Amino acid sequence: MKSATPFPLSLAPVAGLSFVCLFLLSGCDTTPRERQEIVRQEARKLDTLADRAGDRIDRASDRAGDYTASARARNRQPLDPAAEATFATELLGTYAAIGQLTPQTIEPAYTQLLRQTRAKRRQWTQRDWDYATSIYRRLNDRLKAVRLDVVGRDELRIRGLQAEFVAMEAGRDIKDLGQAVKE
C-alpha cells in the first residue's frame, strides 16, 4: 500500500524540521546572503542552548562531586562507640547484644531492626544511617557465625529484610544526591 504523503513517515520526527521547512519556503523569496544570515542566527541560537545545557551539566557535576567528597570525609570519621551502643539499643531493643544472638533470636533481631528503621528513617541524617549501617553489618557478621544452625524459613525472611534495609539505605543516598545536585 502506498503512502499518501510525499515523504516517508520516518522523516516526520526529525529535529529541526520546522527550520528546514522555513528555510525551503523562504528560499525562493530571499537572496543567498539573506539565507546565509538566517543560518548564522539559527546556529547562534543552537550554540547558546548547547552552552546553557553544558553549564547546567557542569554545575550538577560539581555538586555531585562535592556530595561525594563530603560523604567520603564523613565515612573516614570513626563512629563513636557510645553513640553506636545507644543507637543499637534504640534499633534492636532487647536484641542489642548482637554477639549473644542465637540462631533462634537472629531473625527477630532483624525484624526489630527493620521495624525501627522503617519508623525512623525519614528523620535520620546521613550520620544516623552510618550508625544504622554499622549495626546492620554487625548483625550480618553474627548471622554468618550462626547461619548453619538457622532454620531455612528464618533465613529466607532474613534475606528479605536485608534486601529491604539495603533498598532503604540506597534510596536515602539517591535522595540526598538528587538534592545536592538540584541545589
Score class of each variant (00 low, 15 high):
9 L>V: 15
174 I>W: 07
22 L>I: 06
102 T>Q: 13
149 D>M: 01
36 Q>H: 04
52 R>T: 11
144 K>I: 01
36 Q>K: 06
31 T>I: 08
130 D>G: 05
107 E>P: 00
31 T>R: 11
158 I>D: 00
162 Q>N: 11
134 S>N: 05
113 L>C: 10
170 A>T: 03
144 K>C: 02
147 R>G: 03
51 D>E: 15
126 Q>N: 13
88 A>Y: 01
70 S>W: 08
179 Q>I: 09
22 L>W: 05
87 F>N: 13
169 E>Y: 05
171 G>Q: 09
49 L>D: 10
47 D>V: 11
183 E>I: 10
129 W>E: 06
154 D>W: 05
174 I>F: 05
153 R>D: 03
64 A>T: 05
112 Q>R: 13
180 A>E: 04
153 R>E: 03
47 D>H: 13
25 L>M: 12
123 Q>S: 15
176 D>N: 09
21 C>Y: 03
108 P>I: 13
166 V>C: 00
117 T>H: 07
71 A>Y: 04
82 A>W: 06
176 D>H: 02
33 R>Y: 06
140 N>F: 00
49 L>S: 11
121 R>V: 14
49 L>Q: 13
173 D>A: 09
96 A>H: 11
5 T>Y: 10
103 P>K: 05
65 G>D: 09
51 D>W: 09
8 P>C: 10
80 D>E: 06
53 A>Q: 14
131 Y>V: 02
37 E>V: 12
177 L>R: 04
96 A>D: 12
169 E>N: 07
10 S>R: 14
64 A>F: 06
111 T>G: 14
86 T>S: 04
102 T>Y: 14
122 R>D: 14
152 G>N: 04
141 D>R: 12
174 I>R: 15
82 A>F: 09
53 A>H: 11
118 R>Y: 03
67 Y>N: 13
43 A>Y: 11
106 I>A: 00
80 D>G: 08
59 R>S: 06
59 R>V: 07
69 A>D: 08
151 V>S: 07
43 A>E: 10
86 T>D: 02
118 R>P: 01
16 G>Q: 13
50 A>V: 13
96 A>V: 09
179 Q>P: 01
95 Y>F: 06
63 R>K: 15
175 K>N: 09
